[in-house]
Design a protein around this nucleic acid. Structure first.
Lengths: 219, 219, 219, 219
DNA sequence: AATGAATGAGCATTCATTCAT
DNA sequence: CATGAATGAATGCTCATTCAT
């Protein structure tokens, strides 16, 4: 696949970073409200899609006036970008830690899926927005997202290769294909988790891991 | 899950059906152009999303003027509906036939995945639009789509149950969960197939089937 | 002067030209309304300045809705461009004819001033807008205007040189300076003519010519 | 002409005057920064026009925050007014002195033009803004400017009349017309001087005087 | 069957202005 | 003195939709 577009990609947390020149010196007030802004945008984009959402919707979700939104985002597009990046470097860090740990393959897969789906039920909409709306961003705005997504996928592929080396994983699989498939399943169930509150997070995690590891047919 | 929203849902083909009162009496010319209209709309919606696409985009893709589009669609929303429904009853019929056939579980799964992914590479964008954009339709417009989606999912669940009864499939799986997962994997790879022309359709089909049936770990 | 910015510059009449692809085949209806649009824009820009004018003002001056204005202009900026170009190739043609004629220097100067100021009292605001607002156009949009302005100024300079050769004009003048000055005086009085309806066009023309030719002191 | 709009008009220097109630008691610091504020506004208005300029532009040119600008100007409009008035009473005083002096007509004209154009190259933009943007001020705000402009023009007309009485100036000229024309030429070249740094101030002054006095044709 | 023309509501964005700190 | 934060009205522009021809 020439473009790593179906994967989770992470960016440096914009809030922690220094988007505004003065951001670091600004009292926590700005930073705090900026987080609220991103979360409001995430929620609205998740519900209505990028083009279906209006800046008015976002402002309203924050409890401010439409014009005031531009104190936090230079444009609607930048809001999308920041939502997509939101929380992602934290996420990829977690992935790195999981992969670095010395534990059996099955445990790692379970940890990865847990990390992925837990993120969905916590960060809510940001993840969904990332998966479904980031393609509406112009290419320049996607570079950081892309890069971290690649990192994520490669970590997953390495884990699969280690599983093969350890003799746990079938040596005839295509690690690239399986990595994408795992991400696909997780995203699919992640969206379901957001949509349907009656779903049980931990059951879903276990069932996903079971499907990926063991498949459906008797041995 | 309270809403069957992550599944393929099929509607009667608008073209074959009788949407317009006068449609049947009209010369085939209209029907032919209507198909072109739906396909143009599908392509544009797939690329830009429902809200990101303009009626001007669609008209241009058809080679007609913007105003003329309204000869084929009453509204942009109806265009989305028809795109989502396009080809779906044919598709669900095919599913019924596959399930009715007396053949081993593995063969059925392979046939189902083949049907699903082939559709993607032929009908192109309509399927993608259905999966990604149909939620932008108001509920009333989604009823037919929903109903056929349910039919589809139930057929898949029945197939899994038959596999269990036949002793081929593990009897500890949740057929509901597995059905959704199969659809999730197929949609995920379907989108990849559209995005990335270098992907090989038949390899992808086999790999999907293999993952679902056997999983990743050695027995 | 590195930029010929203080001179009258002419562009091919947009209306006569082929801005829209289909413009030539369109019935006169479009062309006719387009002229009205340009004239409305000219009037409004002249009164309020480019940035001070709103598209609403222009639309209102045309008697149409604001949104409909965009059927005639792609953007407010393009409206300014077209106003600046409006009527200018006709004007430069007239200048060419005046210069080509075999007549004494004084008669030519009178004709040139007449042409310049008459234009003001007929085309009204377009000329004023050109002089006062064209610098708000981005450079790309000014190229045609600039080029024709240069042509105009060069014709004026040639006329002065011919006057020198004929022994009528002082041979110690800077033709470049005098050309700019003539244009400056004409623009200045042109603006006055628009502002003050009580001014007499022909008296003003004669006074301008007299000043330029003879100056103010006794010989 | 019913409105003396094409002439230089001068107002009491706001800085020297007492605009703010407390202004005089404030340490010179305020006065100094106020001058910077006016000059920054002048520069920005000259480049972008009144409506094209933003308070943010002005604040940035001063190196302060947008909100802080309101410490120096009550409103954007007041900033324009003050820019237009800036330096004008000094200027009109100079004009009065020139006219009061007992010197030949030609010397006075040269002095007047020198004063006018020198102002352009020193006070830069304020003069240009006055000439090009003051009409965007509401009438109430223009009264002082107008009054001083009238004074200026009358001084010029008196000078011309004195020239006629002295037998130096042709007695068939319209002093009103010539006064306006002199101002027109000076404004035109003044704008050129600001735009084009390669122009030589003193050459331009001499050429303007020469044109006005002697005209272009041989005696 | 198609189009040119127009509409009007909606939207992203800008910006002058205010004010508590 | 100065600023960060917010506002709300305005503005350029887009776009789905309509309709006479």
């Amino acid at each position: 696949m020439n473009e790593a577009d179906n994967i989770i990609e992470l960016g440096e947390s914009t809030v922690a970073g220094a988007q505004h020149a003065a951001e670091q010196s600004k009292p926590k007030k700005y930073a705090a409200k900026k987080v609220l802004a991103i979360e409001a945008a995430a929620k609205v984009f998740a519900e209505k899609g990028f083009h279906g959402a209006t800046t008015q919707d976002i402002a309203q979700a924050m409890g401010i006036q439409q014009g005031s939104l531009y104190y936090y985002f230079k444009s609607k597009e930048q809001a999308l970008q920041e939502v997509c990046e939101y929380g992602f470097d934290v996420y990829v860090e977690r992935m790195k830690k999981i992969c670095a740990k010395n534990q059996p393959f099955e445990a790692k897969i379970l940890a990865i899926i847990t990390s992925h789906l837990t993120n969905y039920s916590q960060k809510d909409s940001a993840m969904k927005v990332h998966n479904e709306q980031r393609l509406y961003l112009p290419l320049e705005r996607r570079s950081r997202i892309k890069q971290l997504g690649t990192t994520y996928r490669e970590l997953l592929e390495q884990t699969l290769e280690q599983g093969i080396d350890a003799g746990v994983v079938r040596d005839d699989i295509d690690t690239h294909f399986i990595a994408y498939s795992i991400i696909g399943i997780c995203n699919s169930w992640g969206a379901n988790l957001i949509r349907d509150e009656s779903l049980n997070l931990f059951e879903t995690i276990e069932q996903c891991a079971d499907l990926i590891l063991v498949g459906t047919v008797n041995k």
